[in-house]
Design a protein around this nucleic acid. Structure first.
Length: 537
RNA sequence: GUCCGGUUCGUCUAGGGGUUAGGACACCGCCCUUUCACGGCGGCAACACGGGUUCAAAUCCCGUACCGGAUACCA
């Protein structure tokens, strides 16, 4: 029988990081086994489920690359079938009507009150003491016919135990005595989670259930339902939980948007790096490798490699540098600087577009224009002004700047220092626009400390202008000119370079200045070196 | 309370009777260097505790502590 797994989130909010990892492990497992990965939206809690949430889950899965192989199943659509099955179990005497009036919902956090009650009952509670458990069929039918409300509970056998071999946790056993007669159908006729899950898993022909460890006790309950139904249960595997730094289960309520997948997409993370990071949280291929392609993950994934202990997802809410897990940030940077450039380009394009920094000339079709520029001798910029559709006031002469070649070279140059895609439009802004900010710390350190620069840098611009009338504005030539200039002024190369860096890019960090000069282009270099805007700031 | 599970550097983890207990992130230092990174080299840093088994225990067994999960007419 070929493997069929499912990811079954309830649409009560955004897609959770922990849920995403469950989805990922299911997906990896299915792909490796040549099986199918299915999606079921568990929207049986009408009060809490929203379409908005369903959309957000779908969106998140699409982003992270875990799209289902078959039509999405909405659990609520199967409610009639679930009810019918509950009735069948009732008719077969495997379930019974419980006429106990529904408890009024307690105020305060539900989890807390459940826990309180459980603690009060202690380990002494007899799970089989429901007075309606052995009500005669006749009386049960009569009371039901009279319109008295009832819930339907599974009649868990007195003696015995549920047992299954968990793919991660090994043999799991639980005495029937520890499992209550769980409710299958609410008194308002609404099917409950465990019943719905079992029915749907059977209907979807699920062979392997891979889900969070918080479902371990549900599994015993569900096996009871499988037994009552006379259907062989699927294989089960439970995943360790992901914990927040405090040690608590990472949750929406406690930890906010740090657990939302979309947070990472919106913050400029690559789906590939996020996937890679998630895969390594609670799973290991037992080797010293950190970076895995999707294909490698599929190939190497195994339930045996999944841990039994939960992992902490580190983050510091008030530390901008560490707002999320260090290793995740590192991994994203690693992807950005080492992945094939062609793979990165579409993401950079999207980011620049969103920041309104994108220009059509960066497209490969822009080649024709760029080629013209290159071939018509080095520094003829006539064409450049035609490239943009900026207002005249902002129009600047872009040298080969603006061509597709310039664009990919620039991206390749600056990506080495970036952590997220956002950096292309933030730190990298000065490469794509005249409208960029100056970092006060950079001004202080690189300009104000050397007052001479106020005159030197415009002077350097003049020097560039005369020197590069004939010569190509290349790194090699630039170096010669700047070095000569530095010697004349009797200063250190770093003073000139860093001063220029600040005026040219607004920041104190970046690639080699020779590359920066070249990539900014002569026209913009002259303009920026002559600009006093930073000095006046 | 009861049931289930867990505990190796700060974090993610490798190892699972004999290891100088390995790697990654983070941090620190040095090198490279016009800046910041990258890269290279080095450093800091861990087997929860107590018994037992054994020639030998981080590794196997028992107990303790601590942590987590579960507990519903939620999912």
């Amino acid at each position: 029988m070929s493997v069929r797994v499912r990811f079954a989130p309830s649409p009560t909010g955004y897609l959770h990081v922990g849920a995403t990892r469950s989805a990922l492990f299911n997906y990896l497992y299915a792909r490796q086994k040549g099986g199918k990965f299915l999606l079921r939206i568990e929207d049986t809690d009408l009060a809490r489920s929203t379409d908005e949430s369903t959309r957000s889950i779908l969106e998140g899965l699409a982003w992270i690359g875990l799209e289902p192989d078959e039509e999405i199943v909405f659990q609520s659509a199967n409610a009639d079938k679930h009810r019918a099955i509950a009735k069948r179990l009732l008719a077969e005497g495997k379930a019974y009507r419980d006429f106990t009036p529904k408890e009024a919902p307690s105020d305060g956090p539900v989890k807390e009150s459940i826990k309180e009650r459980a603690r009060a009952q202690g380990g002494e509670k007899n799970m089989r003491d429901n007075p309606y458990r052995d009500l005669s069929t006749v009386e049960s039918d009569t009371r039901a016919a009279s319109g008295e409300p009832f819930a339907i509970r599974l009649k868990v056998p007195e003696v015995g135990k549920t047992a299954f071999e968990d793919g991660v946790f090994g043999l799991q056993e639980r005495n029937y005595a520890e499992t209550e007669d769980l409710v299958l159908l609410r008194s308002d006729g609404h099917p409950l989670y465990n019943l719905a899950v079992v029915c749907d898993d059977i209907e979807m022909a699920i062979t392997d259930v891979i889900r969070g460890q918080d479902h371990l006790t549900n599994t015993h309950k569900q096996i009871l339902i499988y037994e009552a139904l006379g259907v062989a249960p699927p294989k089960f595997a439970h995943l360790p939980l992901i914990l927040a730094p405090g040690g608590k289960k990472l949750s929406k309520r406690l930890h906010g948007e740090i657990v939302s997948l979309t947070t990472y997409r919106d913050a400029g993370f690559l789906a590939a790096s996020f996937r890679n990071f998630l895969a390594l949280l609670g799973w290991s291929a037992s080797e010293e490798q950190e970076i895995y392609t999707f294909e490698e993950l599929i190939e190497k994934f195994s339930l045996e490699g999944v841990h039994r202990s939960s992992a902490i997802f580190n983050y510091e809410p008030n530390n901008p540098k560490r707002w999320t897990d260090d290793k995740l940030i590192w991994m994203n940077a690693e992807y950005i600087r080492t992945m094939p450039l062609a793979g990165l380009l579409p993401f950079v394009k999207a980011e620049l577009k969103a920041a309104k920094l994108w220009r059509e000339e960066y497209e490969p079709e822009g080649r024709a224009v760029a080629a013209t520029i290159d071939s018509t001798e080095s520094q003829s910029f006539e064409n450049a002004t035609e490239m943009g559709d900026r207002p005249a006031a902002l129009a600047i002469n872009l040298p080969q700047v603006g061509s597709h070649e310039w664009y990919i070279r620039t991206v390749d140059l600056i990506r080495a220092r970036f952590f997220t895609l956002k950096d292309f439009s933030a730190q990298g802004r000065s490469y794509f626009s005249e409208d960029f900010d100056f970092d006060p710390a950079a001004i202080e350190k690189n300009l104000n400390k050397f007052p001479d620069l106020k005159n030197w840098l415009p002077e350097l611009a003049d020097r560039f202008e005369s020197e590069f009338q004939e010569k190509a504005y290349s790194e090699e030539n630039i170096e010669t000119v700047v070095k000569a200039f530095t010697e004349e002024k009797g200063t250190k190369l770093g003073v000139i370079m860093n001063g220029a860096r600040t005026l040219l890019t607004g920041v104190a960090v970046g690639p080699s200045m020779l590359s920066v000069f070249e990539v900014i282009g002569l026209e913009r270099t002259l303009m920026r070196l002559r600009s006093r805007v930073a000095f006046n700031a």
